[in-house]
Design a protein around this nucleic acid. Structure first.
Lengths: 243, 243
DNA sequence: AGGCTCTTGTGAACCCATGCACAAAGTCGT
DNA sequence: ACGACTTTGTGCATGGGTTCACAAGAGCCT
């Protein structure tokens, strides 16, 4: 079954599932149904089952999935059984925050180096690690060990720093700078753009606002016409909670 | 043409385009071809043209797009013509970083409030704003003005804080906590999960590694590995420390 | 004007992803 | 043992997104 070809969309959800599974494990559950797990992960149960089928994991019909076995299964697929080295370049506001982020260590990511070229930052100790100049990259990267590079530098320097990371052997990069990075084939780049996220929210908020005013002046339309508009609200809302 | 229905995938790319356009504008270009703009934004030119066609913007054939006009067009769609208020809840490492992030202000987002319930954080001044207790949320949120809430609190408190935000009238939330948020219909939530991004990179890196070494399964770690399993993030500092 | 060159906008094919619905496969109670 | 019940795994239909390829338009040069 799904030994090699796991769809990208599925991969993006695996961390979600893993987290939900850990929660169930903490709660002492030994098995969990696709319905319950999907609920906890905020997706549909059919989607969850199909996702799991992609990685060939077996539940037992009539019962559900073995929590511990499935947890280990997914963790293994996500590479959590091996320890990944992480280097963070750019120790500004964001770099500081990332260096101190507890969520990394708890998932098998070990921050092994902090780098910056600012004279006033180099030498400072952040979260137990000294900030080193970029030149010392090679001293930290071990060729054998897989290493992920995190870019938290200003946009102007992102490409240059990325090139140096790649030259040093890094093949996985997480980029926080708002820039498109050119990398040779074989190097993976993922991008996190904080401002973009806000802009997307603003787009939808604006649409909501103009929708409410302009088209149909139907204020407080009763539940007769269920207009669950866009797919972003796939998460089942808990109505009556607030407001 | 595309007055109302802009595909979600397109929306997610608009910030990219806007950024690229600004770069072209800075460089003094008056027009730009879809090929050049796509190159700068890191997408295919056909995709770019289709995206732009969705929002009905007109280029001129044989020439390209008017940089300034298109920039304004997209900025308008993304709501950048109006100023959005932003409140950040959870002033730990990440909250600090977000409060000081310059990329927000330059895109029309004004941070108007910082909140936390940790006694030792409240009162501190971060990036020119005092950290207030969560109770004072209502004093900052103006009902008329659109406000986006940013959650940078630990996972356990995310849902509770989110409920309070929604109760106070916030309808757009950016969530950095690794949790699924339940919100009533009409409220938009976007999630940024830093650890997930690393996990996805790790997945691909692992796949690359096993592909390169052995097309056949390589049982590196067969039996149960006694990993230090700290499910939902082992040690949790005070409220609002890290995410 | 006419033809040449360039570039947009879009029809159409394709691919990936989502959701439904149900048979297969297991458990539980009697 | 057997039937009722539960839950997985998946075939299929549907829809969204991406890519190709090209006709329609716009400028430019002679």
């Amino acid at each position: 079954m799904g030994t090699v070809d796991v769809p990208e969309a599925t991969v993006a959800r695996l961390p979600q599932y893993l987290r939900a599974l850990s929660a169930f494990a903490d709660a002492g559950a030994r098995t969990v149904s696709s319905e319950a797990l999907a609920e906890a992960a905020g997706v549909g149960s059919a989607k969850l089952r199909k996702d799991l089928s992609h990685l060939g994991s077996y539940g037992t019909r009539g019962v559900g999935y073995d929590v511990e076995q499935l947890r280990r299964q997914i963790a293994d697929r996500l590479g959590q059984t091996t320890s990944w080295n992480v280097v963070i370049v750019g120790i500004g506001n964001l770099g500081h925050a990332l260096a101190g982020y507890g969520g990394f260590a708890s998932r098998g990511f070990r921050v092994v180096g902090l780098f910056d070229d600012g004279p006033q930052v180099v030498g400072e100790v952040v979260s137990g690690l000294p900030v080193r100049p970029l030149e010392e990259l090679g001293e930290v990267l071990r060729p054998g060990e897989p290493t992920i590079g995190v870019l938290a530098v200003p946009a102007e320097h992102a490409q240059g720093v990325c090139d140096r990371l790649v030259a040093a052997g890094v093949t996985s990069v997480l980029n926080f700078a708002p820039t498109v990075l050119r990398v040779p084939a074989g190097v993976d780049v993922r991008k996190v753009d904080l401002a973009s996220e806000l802009q997307i929210l603003a787009f939808h908020a604006q649409r909501k606002a103009t929708r409410a005013v302009a088209p149909l002046p139907a204020p407080a339309a009763p539940a007769a016409a269920p207009l669950p508009v866009h797919p972003l609200d796939a998460v089942r809302p808990r109505v009556g909670e607030v407001v």
